[in-house]
Design a protein around this nucleic acid. Sequence first.
DNA 1: ATTAGCACTCCGCATGTGTGAGTGCTAAAT
DNA 2: ATTTAGCACTCACACATGCGGAGTGCTAAT
Lengths: 347, 347
Amino acid sequence: MQERKRKILRAVTDDYIQTAEPVGSRTIARKYNLGVSPATIRNEMADLEEGGYLRQPHTSAGRIPSDKGYRYYVDSLMDVPEVSPEEKEQIRREVYQPQRELGDVVQRAIRLLAMLTNYTSLAVMPGVHQGAVRHIQILPMDETHVLVLLVTEPGFVQHCIVEVSNPLTPSKTEHLSAVLNDHLKGRALGDLDRLLLSQLGEDLNDVRLFEQAVELLHRALREQTDETVYLDGAVRILNQPEFRDVERAKLLMEALEERSRILSMLSEVADDQEVAITIGEENVYAEMRDCSVVTATYGIGGQTIGLVGVLGPTRMEYARAVSVVEFVADNLSEMLTKMSRRWSRSR
Amino acid sequence: MQERKRKILRAVTDDYIQTAEPVGSRTIARKYNLGVSPATIRNEMADLEEGGYLRQPHTSAGRIPSDKGYRYYVDSLMDVPEVSPEEKEQIRREVYQPQRELGDVVQRAIRLLAMLTNYTSLAVMPGVHQGAVRHIQILPMDETHVLVLLVTEPGFVQHCIVEVSNPLTPSKTEHLSAVLNDHLKGRALGDLDRLLLSQLGEDLNDVRLFEQAVELLHRALREQTDETVYLDGAVRILNQPEFRDVERAKLLMEALEERSRILSMLSEVADDQEVAITIGEENVYAEMRDCSVVTATYGIGGQTIGLVGVLGPTRMEYARAVSVVEFVADNLSEMLTKMSRRWSRSR
DNA sequence: ATTAGCACTCCGCATGTGTGAGTGCTAAAT
DNA sequence: ATTTAGCACTCACACATGCGGAGTGCTAAT
C-alpha cells in the first residue's frame, strides 16, 4: 500500500477511535496535516473503501474502519506507546504481593487493568492439575466428608470437600496425607497414572484405605481441574457509545456472565505469540461481533500457563491496550517465575 | 383505610407491577371487577394520591404507586403465594449439597434465586471469625511464607498466605498446628483474647515461635475476617424497562461492582425480622433510589449468620420475591443447622 | 354516594422541513 | 497525470407541526 494511503487509513482509524464519529475528508485535512486537499483525501478514501479497509455507515457520511482496516492498523500502522513510569510502578506494586494467593494477585491485576484502560478485563488461570504438587493434605470434616487441600507449583492453593463412602478417622487421614505427600510431591497431578497408583497401594498397606484414596483424588481432581476465569469491569462496556443500546449491551453482558463461554473464546486465541488481538468478526461468538479482545500470555520460566486481556469495542485504543496488557502479563510472569524459584530453593 | 381504597391501591399496584405502564381508572374497572364505575375509581384514586400512596407521572396520565404506596402494599395488601412444588424441589436440590463448600452452596443458591425471580440476587456470608474453629493448620510455603488453613463451624474453609519474619521449619509448623488446634478447637476466633494467648505461650515453650504464631494469626484474621458478598445476575436489571436508559443502568451496576457498598447497604436492613423489604427512597444510597431489595436472613440453629435477597426496580414482584427468597433462606438455614449437628456428633 | 357526560391535558407518533456534514463527479489548474 | 476547486446531491438528525388517544377533573343528573 502506498505511503499516503497508509497515512490516511491511520488518520481515519486514530480519529475514529478517539471520537467514535465517522470521519470525513475535511476533518483529516484539518487535523492531520498531510499536505493535501480534502478532495485528494476523498479519492484515496474511495480507494481504501474499495479495498475493504474503510466503510461508510451510510451514503454521504464519513468513513469508519472495517474489521479489515483495523487488522491492517494493528498489524502495521499503530505505534505502541510505552507505559508511563507511574503506571508501571502502579502495576508492579499490584502484582508483587507474594504473600497473597495467586488467584488474588491475578484478580487485582486485572482490576487495575480495567481501571487503566477503561475496558472490561479478563484473565484465565490454569487449574490445579497443571503444576507440580507442593503439598497435599487430607482432613476429616464429619463422618462422611473430608477436606482435600492441594498446594501446587507456582502457589495455587485449592481445597475441596469430598464425600467418602466410609468414615476416615483422623489418624487414617494423617497417614494417608503422609503417604500421598511422599509419592506426589514434585509431580504433576496430571501424571497420576496406574504405575504411581499401584506403588501407592503397596505403601499404604490397606486395601480399603487405598481405594478410598483413589476415589477421593479422582473426585478432587474432577472438581478442581478446570481453569478459572476472572472478569472485572464488565460495566465499563456501558461507557462505550456503541453500547448505548441496552439490548446490545445486555446480550454481551449476558455472554460475559457465562464463564465457560469466555473460556472457550479465549482458548481460541493463538498462544504462539505473546500478544494476540482478535477483532470483531474474528471472534467466534456472534455477541462479540462488535468487540475486540487484546490478550497476552503469562507463564513461568517461559512456559505459558495463563492469559490476561481486555475486551472493548472494535473501536478500541489498540495501541494503549497492547502496551498495558503486555506489561501486566510480563510482570505476572516475572513474579511467578521468582516465586517458583524461591520455592525450589527452599526445598 | 376503607376497604375499597385498599382494593383500588392493590389493583393499581398489581397492574403496574405487571405492565410497567401507568394505570388508569378505566383499566381497573375493566380488569378488576370492583363493581363500580371508572368515575368512582377516579375519585378514590384522587384521594389516594392526596394521601401520598399514588402519583401521576404527568397530568392526564394514569397513576403509579409511590414508595409509600408500595410500602402499604407489601405491609398489608399483597398475599404471598406458595412457592410451586417444582421450584421447591429445585431449590432443595441446589442447597442440599453437603459435599460442596459453603461458599459454593450460597453462590449457587443465589444463582438459582436470580433465575427464578429474574432479578439480581445477592448474599452475605459471614467471615471466618464468627464460627468455632474446627481445624487449624499451618503449612510452610517457602522461606518466608506459610499457609494458614482454617475450617470453622458450619463448614467454612478459608486459607490465606501469611508472610513471616523468620523461616518456620516443617516440624515447627506441625508443632504449632497441633498446639493451636488443642487450644482453639471449638472456640470462636473472635475470642482470641489475652488469657488464651498467654496460655498458648506457656504450652508452646518457645518464645520466638509464640510470637510468630500470634503475628500470624493476627494477619490471617485481618485478611479473612470480612464478610463476603455474593452477587449474581446483575445484568438482569437491564431487562427492566426502568433501566432502559443506559446512564441509569450504568450508575446502578457500578454501585453493584463495589462489594463494600452492597455490604453496607445490606447491613442496614433490620435483622429482627426474617424477611425485610427496603423500598426506593428507603435505601441509603442514591443510586438505589429506584430499586427495592427483598432480603431474608439465614442462620444456624436460630442464630442469624447471613443474608440472601434480590434486588429489582421498586416496581418489583414483591409477593413472588418474598416467597422465593424466604424459601431459599429457610433451606439454607436448615442445611447449615444439619451440617453443624452432624459435625458435633462426629467429634 | 355514585355515575354519565364533557371539556381539557398531555404524551406519543407520524409527518414534514431545513440544515449541515459529507460525498462523488467534473472540469480546471498545476 | 495528479491534484484541487466547485457544485449538485444524499442522507441523518434535529426541530416544528399536527393529530389521536388515553386519562383526568369537574359538574350535573341519578
